[in-house]
Amino acid sequence: MRPVRFVALGDSLTQGVGDPADDGWRGWAALLAEGLTAAPADFTNLAVSGAQTRDVVERQTPAALELRPDMASVVIGVNDTLRCTFDIHAVAARLDEAYAALTGQGAILLTACLPDPGAMLGLPGALARPLARRQRAVNTVVHALSERYGAVHLHAAEGAWLTDRAMWSADRLHPGERGHRQFAVRFHALLADSGLATGSAPSAEPEFPGPTRSAGLWWLATAGTAWVLRRCRDLLPQLLGLALDEIRHRARGTSARLDLRASAAVSAALAALSVADRPDVA
């Protein structure tokens, strides 16, 4: 009998950024793979830093299908919210396509909802709220589609772990080793409860010390500065416009309209998928 074949799709979170290994990054998916069965799983990590839902559909999903996995994780969406091209209709359609392709081939699907990046970065309210609204929209879509495709879904967008500094790497956007282990432990528990993981659960305790405050400052002064500049060129002009809109609505007491608008967009995006699946619709 061949070993369980597990393929991970996604962005830097699944690639393992924040959990260094001798040859690069390890991450939650690799940790989880070690405990799926008593024998080592056949694990392939297709995740790429900076990936968006478009990359998952166009590049990673075809590669995953060629491997014919028994289990596939798709954890993606934060990078979509950080682009000026953000479109919840497109995000929903791409996730639906990826989920359908993988489950259609018989793979057990793993998904997760994620915290919003604005809160993790500690952005001011007027800047953070539009990003939070976008991430909530993505999470709502992921929740709905996970139920539709019978995915093993991890609720990672809330909980005490989000404010525990020890869980996060120096950049505050990616989990550190302890955070990646938390992801792996929680996914393993969900799979074990469903009889889908029979190996030993990953350890929640890290092998290496967490990042220091000086490491965080060094990241901000070096790689962090470059990251901020890239996002400024892409997202900042639009985000400033969204922030001004946020301020105007708060001054008028009409902030609820922004939430209603976002909710309506999510509902329309999911409804469009339902219509597209009807056999009597061309």
Rank of each mutant, 00 (worst) to 15 (best):
D70H: 07
L82H: 02
S200E: 13
F208Q: 14
R231I: 14
W227L: 09
A90L: 09
G159W: 11
T163C: 07
W218P: 02
S146K: 04
G106H: 05
V138C: 11
E34V: 07
A262S: 13
T53S: 15
L36W: 06
L110V: 10
L31D: 13
S263G: 11
F43D: 07
G24Q: 12
D245N: 08
V48N: 09
R59F: 11
A192R: 09
L235D: 08
V78S: 12
L31T: 04
R165W: 08
W25G: 00
A251F: 00
E205H: 11
A98F: 03
S194D: 14
V152T: 13
R257E: 10
A93N: 02
F86L: 03
A92Q: 05
F6K: 00
A268H: 10
V56T: 11
T103F: 04
A137P: 01
A243N: 06
L239P: 00
L109T: 04
T103P: 00
Q238Y: 05
A265S: 13
L258H: 05
F187H: 14
C113W: 10
Q135R: 08
H188W: 13
W161T: 03
A107S: 10
D70P: 01
V141S: 05
R252T: 07
T37Y: 02
S194C: 12
M167D: 12
D245W: 04
V56N: 01
L32E: 11
L220I: 04
L191D: 07
L127D: 14
A184N: 05
R250A: 10
D11R: 04
A157D: 15
V48K: 11
C232I: 09
Q60Y: 14
A101N: 04
P117Q: 08
F187Y: 15
T61K: 00
R68E: 15
I247P: 01
A201Q: 10
L190A: 08
